[in-house]
Amino acid sequence: MEQVIANGLYLGAQYALIALGLTLIFALMNVLNFAHGQMYVLGGFVTYVIYGQLGLPFVVALIASAITLAAVGAMIEIYLFRPVIRKSHREESTMLLAAAIAFFLDAVILLLFGEKQRGVPKILDGVLNWDFRIIMPYDRIAIGVLAILIIAAFILYMQYSKTGRAMRALAQDRVAAQLMGVQVDRYSMIGFAIGAMLAGVVGGLLVTITGVNSGIGGPISIKAFMMVMIGGAGVVSGAIAGGFILGMAESVGLSVFSGYGDVTYLIIFASLMVFLAIRPQGLMGKPWG
């Protein structure tokens, strides 16, 4: 029981971090970032190269992942999303663009890093064994704690910094924010960069535990979508709640239905559809986001 909860919390912290980036981009630009999973994979590979191959400290690798993805995110916003949003008749057109970017990143990752599963050395050795009730390797605990710290830092940044306030204003009402003198273009760009950066950071964190391969981008995106849907699109607290709920559901489901194979995900998906039919805006979302 304790083991299941501990696993759930650890998974949930990672998931929440992925969902945060996605929901931030959605809140600011009304863009569903199909390429989120691919950004996660790219972040994982940057850490793999710097920490695993060049042998530099893990923290350096993590920061490199964050900076690379922030730069990629900012460029995608400036050169791709901004012109398309301006010219297109229907805002759904950004979905084609996002899907094309996902394909593009997939192709680039495949060409640069190949299709092999890649892993890096453990960042910490040893296993925590609490009376055989909770058994967890130290590196998982470290990664889980690091993820929670980053979430806390992100919330503080959104609450108390000037940039954070501007982005929250933008998410609430784009036109009103613009009238109050918020530079909409600039903060859209910063928001997209931060969202991409968060995806990259999770990729860098998780590569130390699960490794990374070029094919997992799509499934990660779908999971991130689910978390955002559970919590409510475009709401920070919702994304965190969604991440922890999905992490917990997976952990509990996998231990309860371990004999039935993939039934866990069928049940999670099916109950999500029922839940959304009853409460379309998710736990904390505003209707029609």
Binding site: L32, I222, M226, A233, A277, G289
Partner: peptide, 10 residues
């Protein structure tokens, strides 16, 4: 909007 899109994806 995205809500419908996501549910159909699921």
């Amino acid at each position: 909007g995205v809500y419908f899109a996501m549910v159909t994806l699921v």
